[in-house]
């Protein structure tokens, strides 16, 4: 009887359901709630920034692949889309288009493709892009548009500071934390829902947590990194708040403002730049939490999540080498 040529390959002959593409599309799906919130508060601008960031990231990935790396194209694995969205989430919604493109160029071109593309970059590309922009264009990067519900007309040119910046400024001027909070226009509920000033994707803690739960459920991320970051920040700031509630902000305030949720759930959990073992992830998360609080409380910048993650990214290879999985049969060896 005639049969086709049989395929001969090594075991296993069955494969799991995960693929890079599925993981990346899962991350994109998880970012949708936060995207919707940003559209709700920033209007059409949110979509504009996202589209520009994604398009330029994919374009630069294609360009660098074509010119420098050669080999098969990797733009369809979806990682450039994720980088683009994360970059957009990390910038104010009124950012001029050319700054976004520069950010994408740095993120993809310098932080990712120079090291050999997906999987080889030591630092989170979106964050490198963001920090580059923050240092190069401090004015544009820190003039946050005031939120206004469903404002698609884009007439509102008013800008305001983030809660973190308000508190930082106030404390520097010798005001007490409670009086700053009293004069602050935002309640905790606003911070939870996203009715505060800030980068495009970081405003609503609820939407971000929703996305995080989705990724946990789909087993794209594990609980270690988000929980250890959030836990460390909570404990560290609670201690400070306990010491002097007038000069240090409350832990709830620290958790709900700034890029902490975005960083803990989406940025720090980037597989390429985070440790591999559970124990390593915990060390990494604690490190990010501590550095974040140090920068927020004593540093020059009001926000420190991006810097904290980038600093810990650099330590990841060490963590991987140090916290290896426990070998089977190692302990009882006589």
């Amino acid at each position: 009887m005639a049969i086709n040529k049989l395929t001969v390959s090594m075991s296993p002959h069955d494969y799991g359901k995960y693929s890079v593409k599925k993981i990346m599309s899962g991350v994109v799906l998880a970012m949708i709630p936060a995207l919707l919130v940003s559209v709700y508060y920033f209007g059409f601008d949110a979509i504009r920034v996202n589209l520009i960031a994604i398009a330029s990231c994919v374009f630069f990935e294609w360009l660098f692949q074509k010119i420098f790396i050669k080999g098969k194209l990797t733009i369809n694995d979806g990682s450039a889309v994720v980088t683009g969205m994360l970059l957009a989430f990390n910038v104010p919604s009124n950012l001029p288009w050319w700054i976004i493109v520069i950010g994408a160029l740095v993120a993809i071109g310098i932080a990712k493709m120079t090291f050999g593309g997906l999987g080889n970059n030591p630092f989170n590309p979106a964050l490198v892009g963001r920090v580059f922009l923050l240092i190069s264009f401090p004015v544009q990067m820190t003039s946050w548009p005031k939120v206004s519900v469903l404002n698609f007309a884009m007439t509102d040119a008013q800008t305001g500071a983030t809660p973190l910046a308000i508190v930082k400024e106030g404390l520097k001027n010798g005001e007490s934390y409670s009086s700053i909070m009293n004069s602050m226009p935002h309640e905790y509920v606003d911070m939870l829902m996203g009715n505060i000033g800030g980068s495009l994707g970081e405003i609503s803690a609820v939407a971000l947590i929703l996305g995080g739960l989705f990724m946990l459920f789909r087993k794209i991320i594990t609980w270690h990194i988000p929980v250890s970051i959030i836990g460390t920040v909570a404990i560290f700031t609670a201690i400070l708040y306990g010491i002097n509630p007038e000069t240090y902000a409350s832990p709830v305030f620290h958790l709900l403002t700034g890029g902490l949720m975005l960083g803990a759930i989406f940025m720090a959990t980037d597989m390429v730049t985070s440790p591999m073992t559970g124990k390593g992830m915990l060390v990494y998360g604690v490190g990010i939490g501590v550095i974040t609080v140090l920068i927020r409380v004593w540093g020059a910048y009001p926000e420190g999540v991006s810097f904290a993650i980038l600093i810990m990214n650099a330590v990841v290879p060490l963590i991987n080498n140090w916290l290896k999985p426990k070998r089977f049969g190692e302990t009882i060896k006589k």
Binding site: K5, L6, T7, V8, S9, M10
Partner: peptide, 18 residues
């Protein structure tokens, strides 16, 4: 060709298989 080889592209790997 009587079969199709579908594993890592290395003679040494292939030789251990068939």
């Amino acid at each position: 060709k009587t079969t199709t080889y579908d594993s890592a592209l290395s003679c040494a790997v292939s030789a251990t298989l068939f």
